[in-house]
Amino acid sequence: MPAITVRVNGLEVTKEVGARTLLSTFIREQLKLTGTHVGCDTSQCGACVVTLDGKTVKSCAVFAWEADGADIGTIEGLADGDKMHPMQEAFREHHGLQCGFCTPGMVMTAVSLVENNPDIDEDGIRHGLEGNICRCTGYQNIIDAVKTGAKAMRG
């Protein structure tokens, strides 16, 4: 069993992982960070999106050992203590979530979209969320949340 060392939400951890341990399983079961959700088995839904060295990935389509040495960001690391990230605040303000299951992946993706393109427009947001399925909201409030979140992130 290989041992890997990763920085998760800024904290370094070293753990042994099995060859077939997915990054999502590692995060949920070994790190007990259960905010990262698994909604499918074919890597379509995007509920498990985390950042790997700053880029969003579906953690169910990456092996934990592939992440050795990497920086991992999960939903739990987004808030600053009790103060939610502006994107999290925007999702709440716009009712951009209902059941909350797709939400962590959706928010992680939204933050990354805005970081890559601070002036992203509605079309860009809709296409940027192509890899994240929400079954509750019809997406409109998510789009509006991302717009507001982007504005807040621009400062």
Partner: peptide, 9 residues
Amino acid sequence: IGDPHVRNR
């Protein structure tokens, strides 16, 4: 191709 997450990997 795929979606942003697929394109990142």
